[in-house]
Design a protein around this nucleic acid. Structure first.
Lengths: 214, 214
DNA sequence: CAGCGGCTCAGGGTTTTCCCTGGAATCGCC
DNA sequence: GGCGATTCCAGGGAAAACCCTGAGCCGCTG
């Protein structure tokens, strides 16, 4: 079992490498960013690539981009994404295409080292391994219908500008709409967000809060 | 050099333990929560306690509480706090009392394993080791005077209610003030927050954003 | 093709927000 | 004792943010 590890934090990377090595996994390379990960997989063709999501330069989702790239270019290499936090959206878009030879675990939720080893074995064998928390979160989201999802694209655009502190007039200029149109959309959005008129509430702020809370 | 490691994520904890052990550090115990950490330090009196901040049950600052407890009860044990993110406030309150035998590092910013070893040695020797990023952040905060700090307590109270989506009238009822008084305070807050009138901006939302961004 | 939802506007109206000016009471501080 | 900062409030007015109804246009779907 040959594995490449990509994580920008040497402390984590080295630690995980030791754990794997101790348990008979051959850690053939360690890298600290996405480009290096791609190069390493290209050259070494490991059985599994263990990839952290946040890596330089932007520390957002380069690990995930790299994971997709690896899956499409080197389908024989399984990809196991290790994330710091629960970001179900990322996990979903990773798995939804083809749920094979791929996995998504959270570092903090790997209860025992054996779980990581097990996951590595299973993705290498072609299985799809996803942390329970991801599944729970996605199901929970289905249940509580997020009112923001109810908005039409235009309404969402307008609420987004509103959430940046724009006035109706500012929104008009930004989207080239008449003031009346903006008002109409805002009214529609309020209704869909369940914000009814109440003398003690400021609907605009409530809408912004609902939008930002996602 | 005898060390106790407290971190609720076995993956991290075991990894760090391996790294230290490999480099001649005697890891005498590993625990997964704050109470166990205190018990372990009490029984084993290690040279250094390596403590993660977030641990069960609340996953907020129990590691930090444990760290303070260790420092006061077992002053011969140095404490090195390992945090996931940059939380300068925590770091500051840890160090400000007595900057000795204590340290604060960020997992992701430990560039090389040697840095961790070095930090362990130094806190054990009585030094105070703080990640550069913490220092930078605290200094930067001094420089940019947070405009929210400029508000009077009454103004801050009112902006806080505003940030919950209350209307002026709602604020009146909550604080038993006349509408005119609320207006006056809001105007004062706008001025101090640097929110000038602009036709394309909604000042109320901008104030809420400024307040929430802290 | 009829119907429906989304997008675009208008007229005409009310309420809320926010402006300026100005006054008065309290409190701490030099 | 005066002076500044804070807090409380008022009148008067402009502008913005809302409401309702109604309407034309588009694209999709049954």
């Amino acid at each position: 079992m040959r594995v490449v590890i990509a994580d920008d934090a040497p402390l984590i990377r080295e630690g995980v490498a030791r754990l794997l090595a101790e348990n008979g996994v051959d850690v053939v390379d360690q890298v600290g960013d996405a480009d290096a990960a791609l190069a390493s997989v290209r050259d070494l063709r490991p059985d599994v690539a263990l990839v952290d999501i946040r890596m330089p330069p932007t520390h957002t989702d380069e690990g995930l981009r790299a994971a997709r790239e690896i899956r499409s270019r080197y389908p024989d290499t399984a990809v196991l994404v290790l994330s710091q936090h629960l970001e179900s959206d990322y996990a979903l878009q990773l798995v939804e295409e083809k749920p094979e030879r791929v996995g998504y675990l959270m570092k903090e939720r790997v209860g025992r080292v054996e779980q990581l080893l097990d996951a590595v074995q299973r993705v290498a064998a072609g299985e799809c391994v996803v942390d329970r928390a991801v599944v729970d979160e996605l199901l929970a989201r289905r249940r509580r219908v997020d009112p923001v999802e109810e908005l039409t694209s235009r309404e969402r655009e307008i609420i987004a500008l509103m959430a940046e502190g724009r006035s109706n007039q500012g929104i008009c200029r930004a989207l080239w709409l008449s003031p009346k149109t903006v008002e109409t959309h805002i009214r529609g959005a309020f209704a869909k967000l369940g914000i009814k008129e109440a003398p003690e509430d400021n609907r605009r702020v409530l809408a912004v809060l609902a939008y930002l809370r996602r």
